[in-house]
Structure formats: structure tokens, C-alpha cells
Design a protein around this nucleic acid. Sequence first.
DNA 1: CGTGCCAGGTGCCAT
DNA 2: ATGGCACTTGGCACG
Lengths: 247, 247
Amino acid sequence: MAMIEKLRQALYRKETVILIAKCSIFYEGRASSKLSEGERIIIIKEDGAVIVHRPFGYEPVNYQPPGSIVTIEDDRGIIKLNILRPRIHEKMVIEIKELKHFYSSRLEDQAEFQMWGDEEDLKQAIILDPAGMLGEELQLVGSEFSLGSAGYADIVFRDINGNLVVVEVKKKTADVSAVYQLKRYVDKIRKEGGSNVSIRAILVAPRFTQSALVALKREGLEYREVSLQHARKILKQKRSLPSFFTS
Amino acid sequence: MAMIEKLRQALYRKETVILIAKCSIFYEGRASSKLSEGERIIIIKEDGAVIVHRPFGYEPVNYQPPGSIVTIEDDRGIIKLNILRPRIHEKMVIEIKELKHFYSSRLEDQAEFQMWGDEEDLKQAIILDPAGMLGEELQLVGSEFSLGSAGYADIVFRDINGNLVVVEVKKKTADVSAVYQLKRYVDKIRKEGGSNVSIRAILVAPRFTQSALVALKREGLEYREVSLQHARKILKQKRSLPSFFTS
DNA sequence: CGTGCCAGGTGCCAT
DNA sequence: ATGGCACTTGGCACG
């Protein structure tokens, strides 16, 4: 059977398709790109995602996200894949000069992907044990605290003297933009609450850039250096309690 | 020949390898993840990049970047791929329960990837024709203007009245953080230059969030809405001049 | 949908 | 290496 027919049937049956092909690629949409002839890996997934990889590098050189519409065209021996995203007028065209390999099948994968050790975990450790993580007793006021146009404060506490304490958490190096992110929240709360509320702000991260430290000082904000390992230890302790206590 | 030998030889010859396999995946490094059994696409590139795709979605579910070290282990019928990044102690383990498909070969791809229509192009259009893009005559002072701890200003102009004009360009919707990015630059220049320099600041983008507009007004900064198409037209005109004029 | 923000972000380029 | 920043960023949560 002609290759192009096999390809059509595979797509029709919503199989995952993998091609190794000498091809050229054109993209036009939010930006434009062109890639002349070379051998690449083309993945067409069951959900319409199309991903093209060169034989090197982590990132795909061209792609279209799930939901794209793939059509095939035979232009005098050259197979043309047109991948369309109608909503936003994006188009990728793959011109296949030579097909080195073809594979297609339906893949069975229902498993759940679990990930931990991200910023959310660090935040939880701080909420569960403020004293252990930040060195002082703090009472939780709220987290993912909505501040309207200013965004969301990671955590808001009240300290032993009744001050509001706004906390912004970074999982890795906190830079100057993190400082200004925090300052935005403080300004907003100060403005909303009037001058009678006393506010502190703490940037929490395992590391800080030099300019972040300078900006923190200039803006009168505090910071705490925390270790991710320490956070992990605290989470483990707290979470290993009977569910009666944790939930 | 045993599959594991074929795999070893392919890796030894630095071929690109593609596996379709029922497998489980474990990752431990900056974060940790676990993915139980399912059918996936595994790409091992010639430069040591390893990328695992599920049959849906744009992003790989697990990966290691180029330069990773891949070793193979036969654990009583289960092929174990250990992918290591020694420098930062990152490890991914793929346990292959069943190999549905194997492909390997050396891929030839020397082509250069060309992209345009990104932020850099928008910036160039503004530099080449400030009047056409921003509606006023401006004289270029510098671009990627280093401001020490405050970062880099996209473009700095001088206007007809001798004011410095700091320009921050966004290719898509400019949000409140873009406003503060620009404000950082202004504050820095003002501080360095003393109170005698008069500074204007313009945020340039095709779209602005509501809160960005509010923040701009509050901070006394200007903005210009520009069309990417217009920028493209200007670039085309200016660049089609003889190279004698453009270079 | 837009807005805000994290990501095992990655990649590029500067000092 | 660290730092500052864009990315066809993608992805999620929330109003």
C-alpha cells in the first residue's frame, strides 16, 4: 500500500504516528520560521499534537499543540503535512522529501503522573510550620490571597505583635523581580487597609541574587533563606501524622 | 540478537534511538516524579538528550537535557535505562516492561533554523522607525542598555525636547509586571542621573491588561499600542534598502 | 475567555 | 558560573 495511504489511515484511526523523514518545515503564526532540508523525528499524537525533533537538543524545533488539524497532500511525490490551528490562524507545513521510517499504533497510557518537591510543597512546609521554616510563630490568615489587580500573595500571616506578614515564596534563586512582586502586594494591602494596619513582608527562597538583596534593603522588606531539604523534612514529619490530625 | 544488545550498540554508535515501550518512569533531582506503567515514546538523541512522550499533550512527561549519560541494565528481563546528569545529581530511570518498537539510525541535519517575528524584530522596527512605530521623532541613545542591578532597558531614546525616553517592548499582552519592569529602569536612571535629567518611559505592546493600564497611570508612565503587522511592514521597507544603507 | 504565575521551565547572551 | 530576560513559552487555577 502506498505510504501516504498508510499515513492517512493511521491518522483516521487516531493512532500515534512517528515518522523519521528528510523534510523541510515552515511555520507561520504568532511568529514565523523556516527550516530547510534535514532528517528529523516527527510525532503526531492521538490528540492532534505534532512535535518535530532534530537529532540534537532538548526542545522541539517546530510544533503545534493538541487540537491541531492534520491533513495530508501528495504534491508529485512529495508528501506535505499541513498542520492547522484554525482559531488563531497558525499553520505548520512539513514537506517530506524522503520517508526513512514509519510507525503507528494506538498507545495505552492511563497512568497518573505524580510530582512533588515544587514550590507548592515549599509553601505548604511554611504554612504547616512557620516557626521551623521562618524562625518565628505566625498565625495563618490566608494563602493564594487575592489582591485584585495586584495579583495573589502566596501566604499572609499575622505575627505575635498583630502585624500582617505577607510572604512570597520562590523555589529557587529569588531575583529583583520577585522583590517587586512582593512589594506590589504590600503596596496594595497598605492602600486597601489604610495606614492603621502595620505590614511586614518576607521574601523566602533558598538563594537570592545580589541585586535582590539590595532591592529588599532599599524597599524595607525582609527575607529568609530556607533549605529545600529542611522543607522536605518538615513536610514528612507533619504529613506522617495520622490523617485524623492532618485533615 | 537480543534487544538489549541492539540498544547498547546503537547508543555506542551515537545513533538516535526511538523506543515505543510499556514502561514506568522515576525522576529525582530538582524535584521528584513518578509515573506508573503505560505505553510511551522514548527518544534518545545523539547528544545524550532523552525525551519521553505520552500519547497526548505537547510537553514531554519526563526528560533529561543534552549531555546526559545513558546506561542500560538488564534486571531479569526488565530493561532499565538509567539517565544521569552527574553535575547536579539528577537521575531518571525508565523501566521497560515491554518493547513494542525499536528504531535507531544516525540522522543527518545541518540546516539552520530561521525565525522572525519575535520581540527582537519588534524592537528593531521601533529603533529603525520610531516615528512610524511610536508617533514621534526620537534619537537613539542605546539598546539593551545596561542598568547594573536594575537589569537592561530595551531601548533608550532622546526626544525632541531633550528628555531621555526609556522604552520597554512586549511582543504580546503587557501585564502589570511589565509596568514594574519599566519602572525599575526609570527609577534607576533617575537615581544615577540625578534630578536634573528629565525622563519619560513608554511601554510598547500590541495589547495591555487592564491592571497594566491602571498601574501605568498610577506610576506616571506612557504606553503605545502597536500592531505587529505594522512592525513587519516597516522592517520589510527598511531592510529592503541596499545593504550599503542598512549596514 | 482573560489575568496571574509557576515551571525539574529552556535557551540566549551578557558580565 | 551568575544574572537578567524572552519564549510560537506551556500549563494550571481562578474569577
